[in-house]
Design a protein around this nucleic acid. Structure first.
Lengths: 202, 202
DNA sequence: AACAAAGTTGTACGCTCGTCCAATAACGTC
DNA sequence: GACGTTATTGGACGAGCGTACAACTTTGTT
């Protein structure tokens, strides 16, 4: 009474697209730039080579979609982590910084993916557009919670500049940590970010 | 009375090695990861394909040498720029920050090269060793001039931590600027670095 | 002038790549 | 149950890749 053997199953196009993007991200996380290959992604997704080009005009478009997807996911998770937290604006900002240093962020495999994104941003206009959009989102998240603190404590600071500094410091620490996890402890990184914020919102 | 035509000229091995490394860096700066190819580097250096493997056991070793060379050059240039500057330690620190934001540093082509380095660090033990060594040098440069200021002004701060923060903030700003030069002005980046230092050395 | 040493060339090999496209098989509809 | 639609397959194609290696050329020595 076994199911009759099928050579493949049709899948809803949207679901299929998503599964291809997921497979691509898994390949990039595992193999970095070497994982960026139609054949490896197809194998990872369990489909044939040709299907990739059926859903994406070129490999660059697939990566651009993957970039948008991953960046959006991460930003959303951060916002949610803070929004469902209670406490003063100051405490919520601390939750945000904690979320920025969560284990799934401070992961060399994630940097492997991002390094590929960066390399493509420098050559592909489509990727550059995604970068500008997603980076703007990240900065807005930082600024939003920083402004909450500034308003609650009645401080007058340029929250845009403050957010840019926080973003830069976190990016630099994240990069260095992922390249060399022994160079410092995650707690030290969080302390540095807090030191920056406290210095401007003292 | 023309010179008799020669198919090639022998070159001192050390000079040849250096010219191959230079050619590799030029390829990486122009084409990013795509430039990392024996054939393109050979063409750029004006030699045949086989010569690369005669001087370097593998392409990875060539890049590792190129990494060490470029990082050392940049660090040395910065130190020299500050050392030949006069003034108080505080003023010399300002020169250092200026040097960090010099046009030849804030150059997308330089990031193209570095993105390739980062990608390889995450996979190659040899590259990881070079990263640790060169990054340590950079941090030492920062710390050295920060300590001068702290001592001259009799401030008690953890200059190691301060240097790590400065390094991270600069890296993050450099990255963002090279990815999207319209996102902020170089002067704003310098101001942020100064704000970090001033906050801790007020 | 002859010779040895070694820097340099050029090619062949096997592999992987992205793209293209005709054939195939699954699914909804009648 | 037959049919049309289309998601999916799988192989062909040309190009570029890293490596290896034998042949060639230059250079310095005798």
């Amino acid at each position: 009474m076994t199911d009759k053997p099928r050579k493949f199953r049709r899948v809803d196009p949207d679901v299929r697209r998503e599964s291809l993007i997921d497979a691509a991200l898994r390949c990039l996380a595992r193999e970095g730039h070497d994982g960026l290959s139609v054949r490896r992604i197809a194998a990872e997704a369990g489909v044939s080579v040709g299907l990739i080009n059926h859903y994406f005009p070129s490999i660059d478009m697939l990566v651009a979609d993957a970039y948008e997807t991953l960046a959006t996911n991460i930003a959303d998770r951060m916002v949610k982590a803070v929004e469902q937290a209670e406490g003063t604006p100051r405490e919520r900002l601390a939750r945000l910084i904690e979320a920025c240093f969560a284990p799934e962020i401070m992961d060399p495999a994630l940097l492997k993916v991002w390094v590929v994104f960066w390399g493509m941003i420098l050559h592909s206009p489509e990727m550059r557009i995604v970068q500008q959009r997603t980076n703007g989102r990240f900065c807005n998240v930082y600024e939003r919670f920083l402004r909450d603190v500034a308003e609650a404590e009645d401080k007058r600071v340029d929250t845009t500049l403050l957010a840019r500094g926080l973003s830069a410091m976190h990016d630099g620490l994240w990069l260095e940590f992922c390249l060399n996890p022994d160079s410092f402890k995650v707690e030290d990184g969080m302390a540095l970010c807090h030191a920056w914020v406290d210095a401007k919102l003292a």
